[in-house]
Design a protein around this nucleic acid. Sequence first.
DNA 1: GTAGGGTTAG
Length: 685
Amino acid sequence: MLTLNIILSRIYSSHNLTFAFLAGILFSIPWITFKLITPSLLLTLLLQFTSLIIVQLHTIILISFDPFLPLYLHTPKINAMAGTSVLQRTNFFSPPVDPSQSSDLSLRLKEQHCLSLLKSCKNLEEFKQAHAQIVKWGIFWNSFSASNLVAACALSDWGSMDYACSIFRQIDDPGTFEFNTMIRAYVKDMNFGEALAFYSEMFERGVEPDNFTYPALFKACAWLKAKEEGMQIHGHAFKLGFENDVYVQNSLINMYGKCGDIVHASSVFEEMDEKSVASWSAIIAANASLGMWNECLMVFGKMSSEGCWRPEESTLVTVLSACTHLSALDSGKCAHGALLRNISELNVIVQTSLIDMYVKCGCLEKGLSLFHRMAKRNQMSYAVMISGLAMHGHGEEALRIHSMMLEEGLEPDDVVYVGVLSACSHAGLVDEGFQCFYRMKSGHGIEPTVQHYGCMVDLMGKAGMINEALEFINSMPIEPNDVVWRSLLSACRVHCNLKIGEIAAKHLFQLNSQNPGDYVILSNMYARAEKWPEVAKVRMEMARKGLSQVPGFSLVEVERRIHKFVSQDTSLPRRKSIYEMIHQMEWQLKFEGYTPDTSQVLLDVDEEEKRQRLKGHSQKLAIAFALIQTTQGTPIRISRNLTMCNDCHTYTKLISIIYEREIIIRDRNRFHHFKDGTCSCRDYW
DNA sequence: GTAGGGTTAG
């Protein structure tokens, strides 16, 4: 008998009323069949039956007086929940219905209805009506109703934080949930100061925060870049014992990352027992935001190898961005493959970052084909493609894509015009550049920024219009910055205009330029004019300011590893084979009529020393290494921190014939695509 | 019974 009761009570508490009753009858059959009817069983069944009738009647009576009867009857979930709450009290160990509990049932039903009413609100007007109704029911001061009122209003998208706050202020004794709701809502509303103020208020009123409180607060600190405050709150969270809550940890990583503190971000990350996808994404994003691209790829590699790898578009966009910055084509291709294998349709952001990656890693064709296959493009997609074409020196094509953008009805922004103007500048399209510059303001209302002026100076400077460029700078309505003067200085170097070069340098030094390159260019210009005392003066000025020449380096990717070569580096791991290769190349080059252009070494040293210096340029070391390490016919891709010298340019053109290799070099301004002895820049750079 | 983390491209 006892067993029967236990089984029945289990069923009662977990299933619906009718099912429980039927089950009761079913279980009774064996007893009845085998004539095991005892007074106890009869009593049980009688009690059970009576209690169920009472409960049913009770529910029906309660609901009958409720104006929302149709709603309950047509809302199975609410009906079932109300039923379950009644059934949980209906077993043989407790009285079927306690009369004192009857109002509780009514309250529950109203609460449930209140919740669905709030959930159905579409706007503030509807919400206000619901609010009035809840007040009318007299359950406004019930903590469940009040909490849900605040939550529904605060977390809606109606911009009704003031109204939400007014409801919150009517609650006499707000608890943790209500405070959490307000904090979360203010964070969602981007009102971070107010969110933190509510946290302080929590403390003042002695309301204890819980693990739900902290992620929102760290997000607020992340946006405000308030590291000190974040650290303090971090202390509170750990004191309260939430240091192992994965949500708290993830938001901490993000907070430290956004505040630029990778050390704390990493230490939180490392101490996590179980890292979620969000944890990995947060640490990858933290590295990316600090420009630590190599670390970004390393963490991503670790994430994959530790099996916590789910191809998420957002994570891969960050990874692709890292590949772009590192010119890491092979890694970028891997990311592309992972995307294709796992995601059926790539979104615009992913497609745009893929195009950017391919183009900036030197695969213009691949980028173009992806671009033309895009079903939908936005302003950013066009911006990426236009500036990509600009970097590769394809000015006309960039202008065509720009027209295509206008035809599609997309409005260009200032960044698009930076791309367009730099495309004109790299391709020597002076007239077109001026047309675009004027149309930008008259046709699209974009006020030129200092960047646009910089492009125009570059455009004129490259074309040898040095005097015009200087006049242009002097007529600028805004203050020229260092970039503008640097463009002019570089142009002066290329076109050997020492007089204006000195003017440009003077302005750069007045702007307190800390760029050693500016001093180096001026000093080289003096050296070329054999004005050695001036050279010494510039070098001394450099030393006085504590600036030293940035060594040129070249990066080359072989088998997904990036190798760095610094000029004159004699400590290379494969030093012997690389210098042997350089030697071999030199022989071949001699047959092609190459003579080292020692005028490119602007040092007061003898010819032999100059030849040795030229040989050690990082680009040549990188080419030699790539020729050894890669199979015949593979294109060689190199990325450099500085522009290349004329000698390296000529040298690379010849190597592309001798070794039948395509050599794609990205310098600090643009791409040079060497093939069959010519360069895509047509010697205009 | 109510709620929480990472969110990307020029």
